[in-house]
Amino acid sequence: MENLKALAYELRKNTVDIIVNGGGGHIGGDMSVMDALVTLYFDEMNISPDNADDPNRDRFIMSKGHSVESLYAVLAKKGFFPLEEVLDKFSKFGSQYIGHPNNKLPGIEMNSGSLGHGLPVGVGMALAGKMNKAPYRVYVVMGDGELAEGSVWEGAMSGHNYNLDNLCAIVDRNHLQISGNTEDVMKQDSQAERWKAFGWNVIEIDDGNDIGKLKAAFKQAREHKGDPSVIISNTVKGCGSPVMENKASWHHHVPSEDEYKEIMKDLEERREAALK
């Protein structure tokens, strides 16, 4: 089996290159969510270019759409499009590779960008699966700052109402948003209690950058029947290099030349360590 931990560091490097080449991007959230994406795309979900039109494929929605660069790196690795094309075109004039998911590109189901849209759409997808007695599962990745959007809770309500155990939400709980600490901007404490109160099966992992823990959480969600599951995945924003870790200012900072060198060195060291 592929070393997913090492892969996550390799794809972080690609993500940093995409951002630097495009001159913009949301690097902090890309780094925090990468391990969840790698676990989903390379272990949990049955999504690949070969089954892109299969009605029984799993469905994925990147509701925190600003972390699209990490998704591009993952989808390129999956073979949906060449990494070189993303590196060449991201954010450039006339490009399809824009700063939020866009379903004109292969591998992307729904457009996002404005927060709070993914969960209701995921509910609709899961509901269609139930109606058709289809085996697929639906995964929605949200940010923790995103949870301030009221529409998230409308979706949470309906996911429970329709007992959508084929729906799994992932909260990338990196504790930071553009203005600073989530708890200073709008309290997002007691997430487990909040989701439980909405009738969800809650799985909280203390280290959402640990692929082993993520795998176990997805398995637990898959095996739980009768309710939708949410994985509250406590992560480190900017995970991969001390240059950017846990710094709100790196929400959408583009590394300078020196920062780039240091970050790439750190990521490579962690990738090599993961291979040992």
Binding site: P55, R59, G124, N132, G155
Partner: peptide
């Protein structure tokens, strides 16, 4: 009833769910 979806008083959810259903082949 199998083809009817009640979302309660939640118009954002209404349209989001409809889009998700449509994306999976339904005609909402």
């Amino acid at each position: 009833p199998e083809q009817a979806v009640e979302v309660g008083i939640a118009e954002q959810d209404l349209v989001g769910i409809a889009a998700g259903l449509a994306k999976c082949g339904k005609k909402p």
